Amino acid sequence: MTYRITPADAAVVLIRADLPLTKERQLIATLWKNHRHVERRYQDDESLFARAIRRETLKQERTRDAEDQALLAGESDALETTVRQAGADPVLRYFQLIRLELLHVPGRVQRVMKLRTLLRDLGYKKRSPQLVRRINRALRQTRLQTLTRGQIPIRIEDAGLDTMIIFRLRPRRHPMWRGLR
């Protein structure tokens, strides 16, 4: 199944990038330029795609405000259930958004975070073998590589909780990355 860029995914990238309006418009045009990768109903009309992205951006900002209020009120379990009911594998979606960001946000070539932050973003406190398999599968599917400082390749299962992990786009065919899976 081919991944297609949805307005919701593009909205997340725009929110994370925090770009000025002119740069946002350029980013939307860049995303739509290769419209084979855009959801089918938006492949014929760039303005329709841009309007859908703006609607999603507003919706996600409102949702984020509601989530913040729910977290302050101590209702985090209800939020986690809502996220899991959304459909696709949240681990794969998380890394697809990172890939989209690295491909299309100008000047963004890597994403750096601690393993602890990654686990928290995914809604976990501990690293289980099943979660590590899901993360590794998602990294392979999105062709992201994991490095530590000094550009040293690292596997998720070998990283400490406070290890800074650098996510970069994996080169197409490089012999150094074949052994890491």
Rank of each mutant, 00 (worst) to 15 (best):
P106G: 11
L103I: 09
R140E: 13
G74F: 00
G74P: 02
L71C: 12
R62P: 04
Y124L: 08
A86F: 06
A86K: 08
A86D: 06
G123L: 03
L122Q: 03
A86R: 11
L92H: 11
Q145I: 09
K59H: 14
Q60T: 08
G150F: 01
V112H: 02
V105H: 03
D121P: 00
Q69V: 12
V105F: 06
Q85F: 14
L100C: 13
T142A: 00
L139V: 02
V132F: 08
G74Y: 00
A66Q: 13
D121A: 12
L118S: 00
K125I: 08
L115S: 07
R133H: 10
T57W: 09
P106R: 10
I98E: 00
D77P: 01
L144C: 04
Q60Y: 09
I135E: 01
D89R: 11
Q110H: 15
N136K: 12
A70S: 10
H104F: 14
G87R: 11
Q60V: 10
Q85G: 10
R99K: 15
Q110Y: 11
E80G: 03
R99W: 09
G150L: 01
L71A: 13
T146A: 08
A73H: 11
L100R: 07
Q85W: 14
E67Y: 13
D68R: 14
L139A: 01
V112L: 05
R143L: 06
Q60M: 14
A86M: 07
Q85K: 14
L103Y: 07
P129R: 03
M113V: 06
D68W: 13
K114G: 09
H104W: 09
A138K: 02
Q110S: 15
E80D: 08
L119N: 01
R93P: 05
P129A: 06
R111Y: 12
F95L: 10
F95C: 04
T57L: 13
L118F: 00
G150T: 03
Q141D: 04
I135A: 01
V83H: 13
T57K: 12
Q85C: 09
M113Q: 10
I135G: 02
L92Y: 11
A138H: 07
L122T: 00
V109L: 14
E75T: 14
E67I: 15
L103C: 11
T146I: 10
G74A: 05
L139E: 03
R127G: 06
Y94F: 15
G107F: 04
R143I: 04
I98Y: 03
R137D: 05
L118P: 03
V83G: 07
A73T: 13
D65H: 13
L115G: 06
L118D: 01
G107T: 05
E67M: 11
A73E: 15
L102E: 01
A86S: 12
L102G: 04
L79A: 02
I135M: 01
R149L: 02
R111Q: 11
L72V: 07
L97S: 06
T82Q: 11
D121S: 12
